[in-house]
């Protein structure tokens, strides 16, 4: 395996980590106005992700940095191409990020309501846009011979990409509901379990439609085991839902983690060795070779990553251990 492949895998791993961890953060954000009926309850919901959401978001920042370092042309084409969508996502992330801190800093009713809804909206928009972006990556976008995006904002929106957006949004909400089933106490835990049952069935439908459209509209099922892994993802989701129905939230969460893992892995496998598919001509696609940094830089970055990543996993794991208990209204920060 060459270093280009290694970095492709590493970036896939970063996205798996990001979708798995920030996925439930987005889900909790979207569920906030529906599950939390009193201010105290909403505080519990926010505090369930309070200690970890910022660290989870660094997975995205690191993925961005890793793409820049290992595949500069990917970084350049993707972010200048998905321009307005990315700007929208950044605004959503900014609004969402400050909501955590600002909400708790004043106890005016309107003030808190405002930040609650901004937290909701920011989480919803971000999750939706991630789904759209992922679907567009799988489907391919107009990229010309000069590696430049040759479409407009509207070219990013299609039946397929919007289905992908809704599917990922729904998956994250379901993920968040399962997370809350594990992290809260009565009465929130019952409400979270109820939400998991509702969103679970919606998610299954959306993911199945998305998989079907992927089969019809993209080449993913022709690329090695990518299609098989996508089916595994749907299977894990169905099993997770079955567990959720029986009130086995722990199993449901673990199985849904597998759903996220398989889904992301399938997307990256389907792309490989391309990083951005050109819908104009296959040979204009960006690959892990024509988009890559020099072998020297890849070597340096590999050494850096091998040294640092284990520590990151270790201490982030430790924080989840420190905050393993369920959150009650007795101990809140936000």
């Amino acid at each position: 395996m060459d270093l280009n492949t290694l970095w492709f895998i590493l970036i896939a791993v970063l996205f798996i980590g990001f979708f798995f961890l920030e996925g439930f953060d987005y889900g909790v954000g979207v569920l906030l106005p529906f599950l939390g009926r009193t201010d105290d309850e909403r505080r519990v919901l926010i505090n369930s992700i309070g200690p970890v959401w910022d660290g989870n978001e660094v997975w995205l920042i690191t993925a961005g940095g890793a793409i820049f370092a290992a595949f500069p042309n990917w970084y350049a084409t993707l972010f200048s191409g998905f321009y307005l969508a990315l700007a929208l996502m950044l605004v959503a992330l900014i609004v969402r990020g400050v909501s955590f801190e600002f909400r708790s800093s004043d106890d005016g009713v309107i003030w808190r309501k405002t930040w609650d809804w901004l937290l909701f909206g920011g989480s919803l928009v971000t999750a939706l846009l991630w789904g759209v972006a992922v679907a567009d990556l799988v489907h391919g976008v107009p990229i010309n011979a000069a590696m430049q995006y040759a479409g407009s904002f509207w070219d990013l929106l299609s039946l397929y990409s919007l289905t992908g957006g809704l599917a990922l949004l729904s998956l994250f909400i379901y993920h968040g509901a399962l997370y809350l089933s594990l992290k809260t106490e009565t009465p929130l835990v019952e409400r979270a379990q109820g939400a998991a049952k509702v969103t679970g069935i919606v998610t299954i439908l959306l993911v199945l439609v998305f998989a079907l459209l992927t089969y019809v509209q993209t080449d993913l099922f022709t690329r090695g085991g990518a299609g098989f892994v996508l089916i595994l993802s749907a299977l894990a989701l169905i099993l997770s839902y079955a567990a959720a129905r029986r009130g086995r939230s722990g199993w449901a969460f673990v199985l849904n983690a597998l759903t996220v893992l398989f889904l992301t892995a399938s997307v990256f496998w389907g792309l490989f060795p391309r990083v951005m598919v050109s819908s104009l001509r296959p040979q204009w696609s960006l690959t892990i070779y024509n988009a890559a940094s020099s072998p020297y830089t890849l070597k340096i970055m590999t050494m850096v990553a091998l040294i640092l990543v284990p520590f990151v996993l270790l201490y982030q794991g430790w924080t989840y251990w420190v905050f393993r208990r369920r959150v009650s209204s007795k101990n809140l920060h936000y």
């Binding site: 309070g50 910022d54 660290g55 978001e57 660094v58 640092l308 201490y315 924080t319 920060h333």
Partner: peptide, 30 residues
């Protein structure tokens, strides 16, 4: 510039941002 500029940015995230954000969460809630 990506071949040169991306590396310190990625290292900044891996080495610094992870520690900063993770341990700030621990500090606030721990």
């Amino acid at each position: 510039m990506g071949d040169i500029f991306g590396a310190p940015l990625a290292i900044e995230a891996l080495l610094a941002f992870f520690i900063e954000s993770t341990f700030l969460g621990v500090w606030v809630f721990g």
